[in-house]
Design a protein around this nucleic acid. Structure first.
Lengths: 335, 335
DNA sequence: TTGTATGCGTTATCAG
DNA sequence: CTGATAACGCATACAA
């Protein structure tokens, strides 16, 4: 079924069918009805590719995320799609995995679909070296790139993020102020935001006059969703160093620490205080409930889409929008 | 940048550029290199829409899921994309939400992208009335439809699912056999699979000679990720009826029950046994860890993609593939 | 091995 | 209000 078939059956030209399809008001009602009837009768759907050839914009945004089964990323994607849909934009979602080459391929793939803009969800799309980020520069020459939870200063690249450094600083300082000075820091990502969190932690330690904190910083190199494996990891860490507090860059790591405490017979929060990050649904899932940092994901996604829409309509928009996170106090901390 | 620009700069015809792009072996190496250099220099990506016009197949599969932030669906989508990618297929993912009209719109939208097949993830795409499912029949006339975790008997529609009835029957029977005869059944979806689970529960009750189970079947009509709200709901249920076991159609509901137990001062599993469903990461998140039903998602997604590939290459494939689920025993049950 | 010409299904610009 | 026709960017059959 093509527009030609429909036009023939309806006894009009393809131009008229096209007008009906696109809701032009310059069609006589009777003609419109005649065409609509045929369209519905044959359940005709215009070919998106042919359509994409002519049109300048398809009102489509490409969304890339590393892994849709990550709680944080999945939620972000969900909010983004809702926002975009509400603004009349379609979205194309690709889950790229964490391999840099594959990520770059997907970026080009989605570019070939003539999207009006691209949203990169999560800071793992930004590397530390210039070379790693070259592909972003290349693409940004063609269409705007929006970064969620990452920052990259370049023309036509816009960033929306949480002040992870400052927020982590506050969280860690709160723990130090509460008198806990030997804190295990758990992280599993060296992404842009991962580094910011770590630097915030370090800054808080130094501000608290703690000097031996480096030996309590542990990188977990496994699947964070395997909570027992995380607990094992914390257990091994406990054999090397002692700690009365745990701060993690992600809720799942923090929950691994809570699990470890259970095994070791430590009471949370009396013997061990724990703070997570992302304020995911996991926080209310464990006992006691996990104190965690809320990075205002919904606010961020809203801001990001608004910025994108502004950019697309030619307005001057802020290159970077930073929000402060907030410590949500629950049962794993006394303070 | 179009194929014309590249051909001009490289001093060849567009046909040659096209050949290079598509890896034809009928191009002199020197010519190929000349063209490739230009392509890379200008970071040229062929327009997918123009390409899609001529080609029969774009080796693309459309995936529809209601909500990517649902743990079960997100995992399913992840596995599917991995499988498809491994077989050289691209995938387009759309999160439709739960509104029937919007779901139907998305189905047509994705159809217009000339996908080779469509995967509907989760049983909420199948309704109980003929009319609700008409849109699936219509689309299946054009391309194969694959159902994950749902079943629908119709030409060109293929189903891969877990025997939710039988699996729930086994789980509930295990609890009855352990001597627990007053069981609260929690569910929050009347989808195809939701109904199967419920019927499995009922069958187990009847087989166990229990006659008053209907009054302990509760439908939760809220966001299952709000665990405290679920706990509230269970608390109110406990005011109406008494129970020493809880079986839920989803892990999050089950965890809500565990939370309720904590509030009410009930010991799990001594005073209250709990069984969840889906064997998600939430199971290891709570204390004690949740006994849950594993519906072999990874096996299902693998089978589904294999079936799809078979169908696309014209082979005769099973219309329906059913797997048995398995009760994973953890800390919330004694048996 | 390379180039030319055509078709794919729309939208949009003109005429009428 | 409606119809004819030129793009749009690529793949490919056919010619050279």
């Amino acid at each position: 079924m093509t527009i030609y078939d429909i036009s023939k059956k309806a006894g009009v030209s393809i131009a008229t069918v096209s007008r009906v399809l696109n809701g032009s008001d310059k069609v006589r009602p009777s003609t419109r009805k005649k065409v609509m009837d045929i369209i519905e009768k044959y359940d005709y759907t215009p070919n998106a590719y042919a359509r994409g050839m002519g049109l300048q914009s398809l009102r489509t945004i490409g969304i890339l995320c590393a892994d849709s089964s990550d709680l944080f990323l999945a939620k972000a994607v969900y909010y983004l799609q809702q926002e975009l849909q509400a603004s009349g934009y379609e979205s194309l979602l690709c889950c790229t995995g964490y391999n840099p080459d594959i990520k770059r391929n997907y970026l080009h793939l989605i570019l070939s679909k003539k999207v009006d803009g691209i949203i990169l969800v999560g800071s793992n799309f930004i590397g530390t070296s210039e070379e790693e980020n070259q592909y972003i520069k290349d693409v940004s020459a063609q269409i705007p790139i929006m970064l969620l939870n990452a920052s990259f200063d370049y023309p036509n690249v816009y960033s929306t993020l949480c002040d992870d450094h400052g927020t982590m600083y506050e969280a860690a300082s709160a723990m130090v102020t509460a008198g806990i000075r030997d804190i295990l820091y758990l992280y599993n990502s060296r992404s842009y935001s991962g580094c910011k969190k770590l630097s915030g932690f370090r800054a808080a330690m130094e501000a608290g006059g703690i000097t031996d904190h480096e030996k309590r910083i542990f990188f977990y190199d496994g699947d964070p969703q395997q909570l027992d494996a995380v607990a094992d990891f914390v257990e091994r860490a406990a054999e090397k160093i002692s700690f009365h507090g745990v701060i993690a860059s992600d809720d799942s790591l923090a929950i691994g620490a809570v699990k470890y405490a259970g095994r070791a017979g430590l009471k949370v929060p009396e013997d061990l205080s724990v703070i997570g990050y992302n304020n995911s649904m996991l926080t209310t899932c464990c006992t006691p409930e996990l104190t965690s940092v809320d990075n205002r994901l919904e606010t961020q996604t809203h801001q990001l889409v608004q910025t994108l829409l502004g950019v697309l309509s030619g307005e001057e928009m802020p290159k970077q929008s930073v929000f402060s996170g907030k410590l949500i106090k629950r049962g794993t901390t006394l303070f």
